[in-house]
């Protein structure tokens, strides 16, 4: 994000986009679903935009289900035997390019996990192919890694585990952003879940497929692919503003954001939930940190409501969210 000077202010930024998904109703996993979702993305090229260079996009990405077999084999290569699906979470981390900063971030992340009783199994460098990516995008290209976190033995319910991952993500991000010196890239977790993985970046719709070789690997399968292509009102590269976020891809604009954030800010310190201890609740705050897009804020909010029981799927038979009124 560019620094503030003159009359410009980053909070004025807007974005819009094209979104879509391809899903198997029966939940059948295939590589085709992913490949087709990427085709959808490519056919919405005109809904996204390019920056000042034709090969720097405003951001595009895809969310898929955790490709367990693929990750299992990849981790074997790293000498790690992944537990069964649901017994580990995978996070997609944007690390600073600079090695010292990166290791500082990693160190804090590891320690936070340890504090929360979560074991880090391994890190996997996400293979990328930066050919044809514009210089503006490359100038702040993060070092992308996947982190694998084991589910502690005493947690039997995967949704409980998911909530612990949520605490880890928020707490580690807050800690790192408040202690590690910030560079242009910063530290960001695109996703951290046992169920889903996000691949995204400062790309054009056409570049997603080629930038992430994983997505062309036949062993990478999913019952759906959810895609997003962004049109921003600036040309300042920011990899983390690409979508999908952890739960949503959003084409729209929250007109009342400032008020919504104020209302949240004034009430979040009084939040209690049976799904989180008081200490965990503290670690989650602030639910929405500054400098994000309206879409990112909305995602944070939906995540909070979902994680505190107003969820898509709770552990009982009740398959419906209690308040999908949103």
């Amino acid at each position: 994000m560019a620094s503030n000077s003159g009359l410009y202010h980053p909070s004025f930024e807007h974005d819009a986009c094209g979104i879509g998904f391809v899903a198997s109703i029966k939940g059948n996993k295939s590589h085709q679903n992913i490949s087709d979702a990427l085709t959808v993305l490519e056919n919405m090229e005109h809904r996204g935009a390019c920056g000042c260079e034709n090969n720097t996009g405003d951001g595009a990405g895809i969310m898929i289900q955790t490709p367990h077999e693929f990750f299992f084999e990849e981790c074997l290569k790293l000498g790690i035997h992944l537990p069964s699906f649901g017994r580990y979470g995978v996070g997609v981390i944007f690390f600073p390019k600079e090695i010292k900063l990166r290791e500082e971030c990693r160190d804090i992340f590891n320690r936070t996990a340890e504090k929360l009783g979560l074991e880090i199994l391994t890190y996997r460098k996400v293979p990328v192919n930066p050919h044809d990516i514009g210089p503006t995008a490359l100038s702040v290209e993060p070092e992308m890694e996947q982190v694998f976190v084991a589910c502690p033995d005493h947690i039997n319910n995967p949704d409980d585990f998911e909530r612990r991952l949520f605490v880890l993500r928020n707490h580690a991000t807050h800690l790192i952003n408040s202690t590690v010196k910030k560079d242009a890239i910063g530290f960001y977790l695109a996703s951290l879940s046992y169920k889903t993985v996000v691949y995204k970046g400062q790309l054009t719709s056409m570049q997603v497929r080629s930038y992430f070789p994983d997505l062309s690997n036949k062993r990478v399968v999913s019952a759906f692919g959810l895609v997003h292509s962004r049109f921003a009102t600036n040309t300042f590269p920011s990899w983390k503003l690409a979508q999908p976020f952890r739960f949503i891809a959003h084409n729209g604009e929250i007109n009342t954001l400032q008020g919504n954030l104020n209302w949240l800010k004034t009430s979040e310190h009084g939040f209690t939930s049976p799904f989180f201890t008081h200490e965990e609740m503290e670690m989650l705050l602030p639910i929405i940190s500054g400098g994000q897009s309206d879409s990112a804020c909305l995602d944070n909010m939906i995540e909070l409501l979902t994680m505190t029981g107003r969820s898509f799927t709770t552990c009982n038979d009740d398959a419906y969210p209690r308040s999908m009124g949103w």
Binding site: I19, A23, T66, N251, I254, T256, M301, A319
Partner: peptide
Amino acid sequence: MEPWDGPASISFTDGKMIGA
């Protein structure tokens, strides 16, 4: 809670359900 107001088309998923 007040609505988060504005034009929006949202696709969402929790990994088990997907919708818009």
